[in-house]
Design a binder for these strands. Structure first.
Lengths: 206, 206
DNA sequence: GTCTATAAAATGATAGAC
DNA sequence: GTCTATCATTTTATAGAC
């Protein structure tokens, strides 16, 4: 009965996948809350509700489980990117992605990608699945940047590199945290404000 | 001989001050390079060239030595602020301060102030000398923001809070690190680019 | 695969001689 | 105040029973 056997295996694999997703959920949340260096494997295990040794049966190190979590986040970003209407002007596509990132950040589910100071950066560079997705994402956004610059909706005098890095950096801008802590604005307000200062700046318009 | 005694004491105090400044130099550099959580007291001691136990004779904990370093940085910021020509338009004063911060950042001497995730934030809140200076700095910049908004050079529709937090956040923008790592731009170029995207944004001008 | 128990290493902080 | 030596704790990772 190959069909039944395959079904049983698939079920086991599904369970495995579910458990691993639960682990990545916890890791993602902790990465967003404390960052890689302050997140401990004890916390992760406690959060998932399993023993730490069990954690290591699924992921062989702290670096790898973090990289796996970041890879899943990249997949979500790519899903957002691919789900955008192709009729949208390029600048609006870029804004939509940044908007998604800030919303995710405010929801406490955005690990701090761009921190030159975190130990995880080096590990990510050596983790192929992550780098693959980052490359795809970068390429897609890079194309939109060029299109928007040709269309004149994005400043043509800015090097594309600068725009790209800025988009990534604003996706986990600490300003969002400060404003949220202040309590004077709703999440929706904060998103709009950050999108505005990111693309329009802060100077007055005559 | 009170004069001589006073002189000797002053000399000893000068030596003490010099040594403590050397410690704060090392701490400042390490805070900028790795952040509070990844900086170790062993590193600090090694960097200064003294034993770790000696370090603890000068500063009673890692939190306090870091807070002292941050306080000294705040004093430098206040010196910059007070050194600005009073005839400068308010927006230019604000830009000058941000410019100083980015230059300091690129020189590897800007600890990452705004990180909601670092353990040090809580310690800073309880360290009066730092909070005092932060308060003075915030008040001065806040006044300039209001003036610039009334003058129409800064968008009047933006809450002052948002402008203030943005100024602090851009002072240690990771975009600067990324661009520096890329190697395609000089430090001066990076400063100009960051000032531009911070105040003018990234959209095209028709 | 899950658990308990523990190894191995890093690190903040201190004891005590000089 | 400076040093060497050490403590106490945290934390990554693993051993080994079930």
């Amino acid at each position: 009965m190959p069909a039944l056997a395959a079904k049983k295996l698939s079920f086991k694999q599904q369970q495995l996948k579910l458990r691993e997703n639960a682990i990545l959920d916890a890791v993602n949340r902790l990465l967003a809350k404390k960052g890689f260096d302050l997140m401990t494997m004890d916390e992760v295990a406690a959060d998932v509700g399993i023993a730490k040794a069990s954690l290591y049966k699924h992921f062989e190190s702290k670096e790898i489980v973090a990289a796996a979590s970041m890879t899943r986040l990249m997949d979500e970003a790519l899903t957002v990117v691919n789900g955008l209407s192709s009729h949208l002007p390029p600048l609006n596509k870029i804004k939509a992605v940044v908007r998604w990132a800030i919303v995710t950040h405010l929801a406490g589910a955005m690990p701090l990608l761009p921190s030159t100071r975190s130990t995880i950066q080096q590990a990510l560079l050596g983790y192929a699945p992550y780098m693959e997705r980052l490359s795809t994402l970068t390429e897609q956004i890079g194309t939109w940047i060029e299109q928007a610059q040709r269309a004149g909706t994005l400043s043509a005098s800015l090097p594309g590199e600068v725009v790209l890095y800025t988009i990534f950096a604003r996706s986990c801008d600490p300003v969002a945290d400060f404003l949220k802590m202040g309590g004077a604005f709703s999440d929706a307000d904060i998103v709009d404000l950050l999108i505005h200062i990111t693309f329009e700046g802060m100077t007055g318009r005559s």
